[in-house]
Design a protein around this nucleic acid. Sequence first.
DNA 1: GACGCCATTGCAAGCGCTTGCATCGATGAT
DNA 2: ATCATCGATGCAAGCGCTTGCAATGGCGTC
Lengths: 344, 344
Amino acid sequence: MGQRMPDKLDDVARLAGVSPATVSRALRGVSGVAERTRTRVLAAAAELGYAISPAASSLATGRTGTVGVIVPFVDRWYFSRLISGVERVLRDAGLSLLLYNLGDGPGRARFFADLPLRRRVDAVLVLSLPLAEAEREQLRGLGTPLVTIGTEEPGADSVGIDDHGAAVTAMRHLVQLGHREIAFIGESDPVPLGFTTPLRRLAAYREVYRGVCREDGRVPEPAFETGGGFTVAGGERAMGALLGLHRRPTAVFAASDEMAFGALRTLRRAGLRVPADVSVLGFDDHDLADLLELSTVAQPVAELGERAGHLILARLSGGKIATSPSILGTRLVLRGSTAPPAGR
Amino acid sequence: MGQRMPDKLDDVARLAGVSPATVSRALRGVSGVAERTRTRVLAAAAELGYAISPAASSLATGRTGTVGVIVPFVDRWYFSRLISGVERVLRDAGLSLLLYNLGDGPGRARFFADLPLRRRVDAVLVLSLPLAEAEREQLRGLGTPLVTIGTEEPGADSVGIDDHGAAVTAMRHLVQLGHREIAFIGESDPVPLGFTTPLRRLAAYREVYRGVCREDGRVPEPAFETGGGFTVAGGERAMGALLGLHRRPTAVFAASDEMAFGALRTLRRAGLRVPADVSVLGFDDHDLADLLELSTVAQPVAELGERAGHLILARLSGGKIATSPSILGTRLVLRGSTAPPAGR
DNA sequence: GACGCCATTGCAAGCGCTTGCATCGATGAT
DNA sequence: ATCATCGATGCAAGCGCTTGCAATGGCGTC
């Protein structure tokens, strides 16, 4: 039983007693085919189990039915969540999703050199990855719509959250509890891959923290700004460094829940109690934040992905680029890791 | 500055002063092109920034340079990890990865009905998803190599771990510590999507637990077998149910770390101490298991993905199906959540 | 010095679908 | 009854690459 060749349009045409052109039109639901004919064609196609050849179709139309998604990581909570969200809406719309993981290494350079998605996709989605000028040009050269999540690029639709505002809100919460000595765990310097999100959160931290210091007439502690690489281990180390300081923070704001988890662990190992001795506030509302009683800033990650998917669909059907990015709301989720500082 | 049409093979041919056929051969590194000619062609292509049209190439050769990856979830630790691993090796080999997330709903039926990856991929990778007979036939009808992770399918290469053996080892650890009343948190019944992994771990649990009961001349407690849906929340609920039993377990073996996390939480809320009052053992070695001091069975998830990637590459270059699955090793990681039962 | 061989290169026929344009009736208007 | 109109189809020329086969020419051989 040899490998049966897949059926072609002509086979269906013959079976239905019409021309290939008509089959093509009928199958795609294009107008201009008599209802009876269409029915007959569909029946013939079903009988043969016929499926169109994407390659041939793509060659003829220039469309691919695929969107390229470029991510820096796939195995981190935030990104996998995003991917899941966008995949859902694209799949519902009958589009396929081509995944490119730039990784942390030389993959990025190679990706932009080869541009493997060239002519392979109808649109490109970039997740949280700020593009260098040259990279943006490369992507623009593709001639496909570009949408981004978490960054704004000229000529691209984008969706994101108000990082600065959310971080300010988070910091204010700490201040209102009575904290004055607040540390920050963010990204290391220089920021890998050029991420801008950590910087926006850092800026918000500085703004609030320095404001408090000014009020109190104290000088801000620069060592309170630490980097945790957005990983649990990095958060652990950063918290360790903070504990080594003479001037110790009474609260810590981590730019991601994972880093906050790491901080919690270091604190526990050091015999310090949260929130009695130190308050910890995260960012993300990771699945496990609830488990660990972590107060945090919740962001609607899956919705960000879905919104991006819808933007892609809109652009693919001729929509124009929105003049301003879609900003989704965040929300402070208070759990057990934040409280007034000891002695208040 | 209008949308410049992308260059075609002919443009390169003209620039290099050769025929399109020669360009095609030169670009693909096929033998039978003089070295000087090849150099000239490559230079011309580089000058034009030429990139081949995948659609045209695919139409002509029948190859797509793409592999389809079918997953039940992308935003769970285990799966995102797997995807990351396989993506890495495929990308290094110049292949692209088309992601299909079946999701929990009707997506699966629709996927197999439409089979959107038909004629779009050179190989298919199925992650942890046992296939129904009809589904397997569908996939086989694609005529592409099939490899699976975590399940064995006739006619497919597969990679996985020894679930039964690993779970037995885990259970024995508990027994050696002195536990006799051991509960299990696995999948609910019926198992969603037909997953078999939970069943294999359950079987191992039963084997060991019943063995112990037999030795002791006690009757096994059927209520010790609970379902947690492989989520934190599910683990929480399952642990809650266990605590409601008259006959209480002194140790709990969870078939995934996420469920173990949930169990830990329930225990903490109930005022029980781990491991003093109850021991908890997980499965996976999730990123956060270390953080939560969870003893667990570590499985090399990223390596499973990479191995699968290599199997795909091998099959794509003509290799035969291995007669037996690749089994990667697991390892018991003891942390602070397991100890002898109270009173020993 | 003629001949055969082999490495290079070019020719041209696809690969399977889409689509502008022509064709063909049937319908409605005059 | 005649002709314009319009909907439904078919024709055929691509879309951009690959590849079997033929053509070409340089060389070694006898």
